[in-house]
């Protein structure tokens, strides 16, 4: 039981810990208001650098990532919404720059597959459980009991 609690606590810790590395901004930005600073952090962490494949623009040294960060700041100061800023980037660099691809006719499989896999797993487990139910414990016949006794006695006498 104590082990279970410990494991549970560890899991909770893992799930709730915030990745600290992700927001290592390259330039220091001065935002007048903390909400905008927060939005800047979220936006630059969710936009993917078009040049570097597996890095958000917040941590990339690539020149295009620097240009995009600059543009995000500019658009934030203009008072654009998060969605407008993401649309602005998608209009220029394509869906590729979104770390969270939008749900549309090309991405439904991507979004739907995990749920489908969980369902398939559930069905398999259900099938196993049902099969188990048909297994019944049968009492030994007199003949079998005799044979079992003989075997046990032989083991004991040696």
């Amino acid at each position: 039981m104590a082990l279970m609690i410990r494991a549970g606590l560890l899991l909770l810790l893992l799930v709730t810990s915030v990745p600290v590395l992700a927001d290592s901004a390259i330039e220091v930005r001065d935002f007048e208001n903390p909400v905008m600073a927060e939005r800047y952090r979220d936006l630059t962490a969710s936009l993917r650098c078009p040049k570097c494949d597996a890095q958000a623009i917040d941590s990339s040294n690539s020149p295009v990532a620097a240009d995009m960060r600059e543009r995000v700041v500019h658009l934030l100061r203009e008072g654009r919404s998060d969605k407008e800023i993401l649309d602005y980037m998608v209009a220029r660099f394509g869906e590729f720059v979104l770390y969270n691809p939008r749900l549309d006719e090309r991405t439904w499989l991507l979004w739907g597959l995990p749920a489908v896999l969980v369902m398939i797993g559930g069905l398999i487990v259900a099938a196993f459980v049902r099969n188990r139910r048909h297994i019944r414990v049968r009492a030994l016949s007199a003949e079998e009991r005799e044979r079992l006794n003989a075997l046990v006695n032989r083991e004991g006498s040696e």
């Binding site: 078009p50 690539s62 295009v64 240009d67 543009r71 220029r92 660099f93 394509g94």
Partner: peptide, 12 residues
């Protein structure tokens, strides 16, 4: 300044 490049989505 790369402004037109940015509008074109140039990344390399």
């Amino acid at each position: 300044d790369g402004d037109l490049g940015f509008e074109l989505g140039v990344y390399g």
